[in-house]
Write a protein that binds this DNA or RNA. Structure first.
Lengths: 218, 218
DNA sequence: GTGCTTATGTGAATTCGTTTACAATCAAGG
DNA sequence: CCTTGATTGTAAACGAATTCACATAAGCAC
């Protein structure tokens, strides 16, 4: 769907889920209208950037008034395809993988970890927070059965590339990669890296060299 | 230190730990020299970008030859201040916090989680992978005693801002924030957000709207 | 209605980051 | 010591993202 809508800048696209979440909470608290200035304060993005982001989708607000919360909510739900649930596989049920399976943040939104895979026989066959853990050898069959096209990769980094190759073979379309490995995949597969030790290292570098903070992740 | 070195672009600064890690592994494998093209292949960053990044620090390589691995290693160790160990506190020992304490990735590098805090009395007083867990009420004393100026924040989001306020009061300089809350802190404190559910959401958005991947976290 | 206030939407300017493209330089081999 | 081949370092071009700044339009009060 929607590949031929005018392309939204990537930086904008990355902020959409952030907007959506805050709009949800506004709606839940009963607020009827909101200005770009209020949004800015809450999500810590410049108000002009917010207006520009919204404007890529047309005129969502009204001059002198702001944005109608219900309207925004409906709009973003549609745009972010929140009515369809996206099934996610978690590959590698170690410390980090376990946290993701248990952590409730994935049960909000429209994403759901429906299956975990691991090579450790003591984990295979168990259920964690309702999620069945299968052996990696069963990946092909289960991935195809459940039409899963997103995976969270939390295996030891030595296995990351080969597991990614398998995932690609089984038709994966997106990988959220928590391993330090830089994966090589066909360019039809989207990979986002979250490299925790690098995030920590770079935080420390910024602390030491940019004593007064600006930009970057807020 | 070094606040008055010429400022490195933020995008470059975020890549430095990545370079450092790969250079370490080159060194470990006994390689003597490396070109920007090889580095590019490994870390998946354009070779011109790598050369440009390096050039902010002066001429680290030799034309027609490449870079000397030992030299790069020494240079980056110094630049990234890898000889000093940075003590890190972990606040909020839930699923995710537990994973971080146990996960060995923090034991590499120069960073070390030396203490955890939680409000749950059943956790207080225990030790996880050698890290003592204290009650949040003891934060002030322990933070100051151990001269900790970086914290990983993995508390429920409702408490995030108030815990951050406390951390600021106790002299924190950097926070790696895993909660969805957008923290308000003085601009002398550096905050990096890692918002896991937003990362997943935005991956899915990109998959659906940018079928062929370019840029963004590769 | 009329006028005042407010806040959007966007053209233009700016800042930031990446990439191209190539002159300068060095190693290595004969 | 000269030539060849390789690879850096960077100027210039390009592209992406942010921010400024304001004309425009809507709500609201009276």
């Amino acid at each position: 769907m929607s590949q031929n809508e005018p392309k939204i800048p990537q930086a904008t696209a990355k902020r959409l889920p952030l907007y959506y979440r805050f709009i949800q909470s506004l709606h839940a608290s009963g607020k009827q209208r909101v200005s770009s200035a209020e949004l800015s304060e809450a999500v810590k993005v410049d108000s002009a950037t917010i207006r520009r982001d919204f404007s890529y989708f047309g005129a969502l607000g009204k001059k002198g008034y702001g944005y109608n919360v219900q309207y925004l909510l409906d709009f973003f739900r549609k745009t972010l395809n929140q009515d369809e649930i996206t099934n996610v596989a978690l590959v590698g049920v170690g410390h980090l993988g376990t946290a993701f399976v248990n952590y409730n943040f994935l049960k909000n939104n429209n994403t759901h970890i429906v299956v975990g895979f691991d090579a450790d026989e003591t984990k295979v066959g168990t259920t964690m927070s309702g999620v069945p853990i299968h052996h990696v050898d069963e990946m092909e069959q289960i991935m195809k059965q459940n039409k899963i096209d997103v995976a969270i990769l939390t295996v030891p980094s030595a296995y990351a590339q080969s597991v990614a190759d398998d995932l690609v073979r089984y038709g994966i379309k997106g990988i959220l990669n928590f391993t330090p490995a830089r994966l090589t995949v066909p360019d039809t597969v989207r990979v986002h890296h979250i490299d925790l030790s690098i995030e920590l290292q770079s935080l420390i570098y910024f602390m030491q060299h940019y004593p007064t903070a600006e930009g970057v992740h807020q």
